[in-house]
Amino acid sequence: MMQRYPLTLRNFLLSFILGLAVGHAAAQEAHGSVAQAVTQVVRSQLNAFAEDDAETAFKLSTASTRQLIGTPDGLLSVIKHKFTPIYRHRKAMFSEPEIINRSALQIVHLTDADNLVWIAIYQVEQEADGIWRVDGCQLFETRSMSI
């Protein structure tokens, strides 16, 4: 009878450890899919701006941003005049997004036509429908040049 107890305890511990490992793997996979969704919405909006596709860029924005800006053409106009490196960039390099609950920060290093490097920090929100959308962006000029 004494042998059954250690065997049962060993089985319990083994099951517990396997459960933790599976749970950790599932959490990493879930984080990975969320990170992909965040990066993809920013990449899609950058592509929409590059193609002058105001409608798509507008749809990729949060409801609060759409309400603030008003129209797809209004958004494109703001980007053209105040965020030129976002509107016309040669290269975009994405960092791993930082995700906290239903919000994320996505950092993108943009190289403009003059080879100047800019840092764009996107705020991305998961809305009630479960879709990740761009809520805003801060743009910072660096003293770096791309080669």
Rank of each mutant, 00 (worst) to 15 (best):
L76S: 04
S144Q: 14
H89I: 01
T71A: 10
K59D: 14
V34Y: 05
D52V: 10
R4F: 13
I86K: 00
E125K: 09
L116R: 11
L139R: 02
F12N: 08
G70C: 06
F94W: 03
S146T: 10
R90C: 10
F140I: 11
I100C: 10
G23K: 03
Q3V: 14
E29M: 13
A21R: 05
F16L: 12
E98H: 09
T142V: 06
Q67C: 11
I147E: 15
Q36D: 14
A27F: 08
A54M: 07
S103I: 05
S15E: 07
A54D: 05
G32M: 04
K91I: 08
R66C: 07
G74C: 04
E55A: 13
P97W: 00
G19F: 05
F140Q: 14
M93H: 13
A21D: 08
Q36A: 15
G136Q: 03
A30K: 08
A26W: 06
Y5S: 12
S77H: 11
F49Q: 01
N115S: 11
L76T: 02
L7F: 09
N11M: 15
I147R: 15
Q67A: 14
W132N: 01
M1T: 12
E51V: 08
L75C: 05
H81D: 15
R10G: 15
A35V: 05
Q40H: 06
P85M: 04
F83M: 09
Y5N: 12
V117P: 01
Q45V: 05
N115Y: 07
A57E: 03
I107W: 03
Q106I: 01
E51M: 13
G74L: 05
G130R: 02
M145N: 14
S15F: 09
T8F: 15
R66S: 06
L139T: 01
S103D: 07
N11T: 12
T62G: 04
P72R: 03
A63G: 11
M93R: 10
I99F: 02
S64G: 12
Y122T: 00
R133T: 00
R102F: 09
L116V: 15
I119H: 04
V108A: 02
Q28Y: 12
L76K: 01
I99N: 01
L13K: 08
H89S: 01
L13Y: 09
Y87D: 06
S61I: 04
M1D: 10
R102G: 08
G23P: 04
H24P: 11
D52F: 11
A92T: 02
G136P: 01
D112W: 02
G74H: 02
Q123V: 09
G32F: 04
S61C: 08
V124R: 00
M145Q: 14
L46K: 00
V78Q: 07
L9Y: 06
L75K: 02
D114W: 05
V22L: 12
Y122A: 01
K91Y: 09
F16V: 10
A26H: 06
D129M: 03
A113D: 10
Q36S: 14
A54V: 06
T65F: 13
L20M: 12
